[in-house]
Amino acid sequence: MDLLIDSFISAIRLIVSMDAEMVAIVGVSLKVSCTSTALAGLIGVPLGFTIAFSEFVGKRMTITVLNTLLALPTVVIGLFVYAFISRRGIFGPFDLLYTQRAIIIGQAILIIPVVAAFTIAAISRIDERYRKTAMTLGANRLQTAWIVFREARFGIVAAMVAAFGRVISEVGISMMLGGNIKGFTRTMTTAMALEYDKGSFILAVALGIVLLGLSFGMNILFHFFQGRVHSQ
């Protein structure tokens, strides 16, 4: 118990003093997570929107596949991407392995289904009358789509927040594709795993507190946007 309390007090001191190593790790984590979330948004939102807005053969199956991909383990994605970007992989010549870009690619693959599935859910919740109203007011298909998108905006932002929450706390991809290189690819979760292995808890606890704080902030944001969706 003393170990935990001592570690906790020291961790708080570390956070207050803005320890350089801790700040660097948090910086890397935020950078890769924000980038992968933005990348997943660029792909997942239009993908989800197109699936939700269009009628095509196999739509239900596509949604089922996307929902299945939500449960994809991070280590499976790590392994999969590793096979492509390792020296012997087809993208080997690009030297992506053990770089932040590798983590970003892996994390984006992880959360594209999350963003797409949440976007589909957000669009599906939008009242059919918005589409009909836009059409009767003379809107073309693109303008009608924009109206539906606008009405679903809070749901889509909630999708992005949920996706960010997923990548900021994942460890498998960061470890397998980033390699936990200090000052370069060491993220909060990989640093915590390493500190645990070393039996050094202070930095791990400090990072845990920061991670929990970020997750808490993300959840507040998520519920705020979810609330806006339901109040529409």
């Binding site: 009242d127 009358r129 918005y130 059409m135 009767t136 003379g138 109206i147 606008r150 009405e151 529409q232």
Partner: peptide, 16 residues
């Protein structure tokens, strides 16, 4: 043609 014909629903919905 839709620019000449406008329909208002029984329970119309306004954009947010």
């Amino acid at each position: 043609l839709r620019k000449e014909v406008v329909l208002v629903d029984q329970h119309p919905i306004l954009f947010t």
